[in-house]
Design a protein around this nucleic acid. Structure first.
Length: 169
DNA sequence: TCACGGATTCGT
DNA sequence: CGAATCCGTGAT
């Protein structure tokens, strides 16, 4: 079943775990649909999380994270990689889940390449979009938690949080 | 207008 | 493990 708005309006850490095993769906311009099982995620939680892009407050870039859960936040990293995040939580509290891996593509840059996701989908409403959404079969998935990657700029405390989640076989 | 640096990737 | 890569962001 396709996720509804209420499914997205929850804590990003909870959502990051829940998204494991769910299916990321992408309809291309030619009508074909790409589907992939999500196997790795990371949570970014609010201005209090120094690893979160929104920790310095609301800016043109982070504005989308302040929208209600269910929107896509896509940005360019290292000048060359597009990153797909799912905005979660209530409006005005910036939270998001980075999709780090799908079956047959690990690494956030590879995920967007495989699923043909670009910044053109930034701010997309995944509740109503015909181009990007998520489906769940309701099943639980086992996973392991570890520290987030590539956040050396964050506080030691936030670097140590185990907010990276990977499906276990 | 411009200096800074990054939620990475790939090859060795 | 280290270099490539380069545009966007955010402040001036």
């Amino acid at each position: 079943m396709r996720l509804k708005k209420r499914d997205y309006v929850q804590n990003a850490v909870t959502m990051a775990k829940a998204l494991l095993g769910m299916t990321l769906c992408r309809r291309l311009d030619d009508g074909s649909v790409l589907r992939a099982r999500i196997i790795e995620t990371e949570a970014y939680f609010g201005e209090e999380d120094t690893a979160c892009h929104a920790h310095k407050g609301r800016t043109p870039r982070t504005d989308v994270m302040y929208m209600a859960g269910g929107h896509a936040y896509v940005y360019l990293c290292y000048g060359m990689h597009e990153m797909l995040n799912i905005v979660t939580g209530p409006a005005d509290h910036p939270e998001a889940v980075l999709i780090r891996g799908i079956e047959c593509a690990t690494g956030p840059g590879r995920v967007t390449k495989a699923m043909r996701v670009s910044r053109a989908l930034n701010r997309e409403n995944m509740v109503s979009s015909k181009r990007l959404w998520i489906e769940s079969d309701g099943k639980c998935t086992k996973f392991k938690a570890s520290a987030r990657i590539g956040i050396g700029y964050a506080s030691r405390r936030d670097q140590s949080r185990k907010w990276r989640f990977i499906v276990t076989p």
